[in-house]
Amino acid sequence: MASVNILSTKGLTKTYGGIDANMDVDFELQRGKVTALIGPNGAGKSTFVGMICGRISATRGEVFFEDQNISSMPAHKRIQLGIAYTFQITSVYAGLTLLENTAISARRRLGKDNVAVNAKALEVLERVGLADRAHQIAGDLSYGHQRVLEIALGLAQDPVLFILDEPTQGLAETEIDDFVDLINALSGDTTILLIEHNMDVVMRTADQITVLEFGKTLASGTPSEIHNNQAVQAAYLGTAVDA
């Protein structure tokens, strides 16, 4: 039987020069759930997920995915295991069309089968509401649409674990609603790790919340547990979790 946790970290640490961006983070991610990673700016959230997917090399500590130690695996191998990652700072193929963008993403798994690649590439654009712009150049899109395309690049991989770094940053209200619907539709099949500033989005999507502060986990639990957590309330002075 597959274990409850799809991913875990043990003592994960990242030191930049003298700064401890992450300090001995032990973390467990439940299969099929939506887990939100929250915390103030500079808490080390991006660094943490960067070390999970291999984009950032850990100073020390271990990452386990499906009970396999992937700590020394290069990023592309980890992605091949079914981990998709979207960047906090939008990183799409600005010089290519939207369809080519999602096709590159789909092609890694589907390979030579052009028909399947195209179908998948179009399907994910439809899913995020960009299909009518399939032949536009990505760099010509608005900032919000580029963020959405970034999410589509993740979807096109049919990931087992989908990691999103502040996906709703810069999105309009209606786009945020669509995003919430998308995440809720994905959960169950796909495990989601979501870094999110917007507490409304967190409350509408998350099954689990982990709070990171100064590179350490401050608390982990269900939304209501986090809401009632003394330490979290003290840290946020009751402002951020009012939602």
């Binding site: 984009r55 960047f87 798994r109």
Partner: peptide
């Protein structure tokens, strides 16, 4: 196509699972 993807955005291509 993967070479073109590397030309356009190497970091993104790596993070889509390609051995750049």
């Amino acid at each position: 196509r993967t070479l073109v993807a590397i030309r356009e955005n190497e970091e993104r291509t790596k993070m889509l699972g390609y051995d750049t």
